[in-house]
C-alpha cells in the first residue's frame, strides 16, 4: 500500500489534472457533436470518470480518504444513472426505431 501510494505520487499531480481535463473535454465534445444517444451517454460517463480520476488523485496526494468516498458515491450514482438512462434509450428506440437525437426534436414549446 505504501509503495502504491509512493508510485502514484511519483507522477506529478499536474499530469493527473491534465489527463482528467483531456478526458473531460473529450466527454464534453463527444456530448456536443455526436448524435448517437449511446455515444452521448458514454461521453457523459467519460466526464464522470474523469472527475473520479481527479478526485482519487487529489485524495492520494493529500492523504485524505474523503475524496475516494466520493468516487464510490459517484460510481454508485453512475450505475443507477446508466440503468435509468439506458432504459430511456431503449424506450426511445422502441418508439422511434432510432437513437439519433436529432430525431428527438419534439421536446419543445
Amino acid at each position: 500500500m505504501e509503495t502504491l501510494t509512493h508510485n502514484i505520487q511519483a507522477i506529478p499531480l499536474n499530469h493527473y489534472i491534465l489527463l482528467s481535463s483531456i478526458i473531460f473535454s473529450i466527454g464534453v465534445i463527444g456530448v456536443l457533436i455526436r448524435r448517437n444517444a449511446i455515444v452521448i451517454f458514454m461521453s457523459v460517463e467519460l466526464m464522470l470518470n474523469s472527475v473520479n480520476l481527479l478526485l482519487a488523485a487529489f485524495s492520494v496526494y493529500r492523504g485524505d480518504a474523503t475524496g475516494q468516498v466520493f468516487v464510490f458515491f459517484i460510481m454508485a450514482l453512475a450505475a443507477a444513472e446508466v440503468a435509468v438512462g439506458l432504459a430511456i434509450i431503449v424506450m426511445i428506440y422502441r418508439n422511434t426505431n432510432s437513437i439519433d437525437i436529432n430525431v428527438l426534436n419534439r421536446l419543445k414549446w
Binding site: 456536443l32 452521448i40 436529432n102 428527438l104 426534436n105 421536446l107 419543445k108 414549446w109
Partner: peptide, 9 residues
C-alpha cells in the same frame, strides 16, 4: 426551445 437535444446540451 427548438427541441434539438444537441442544442440544449
Amino acid at each position: 426551445q427548438t427541441g434539438n437535444v444537441g442544442y440544449y446540451i
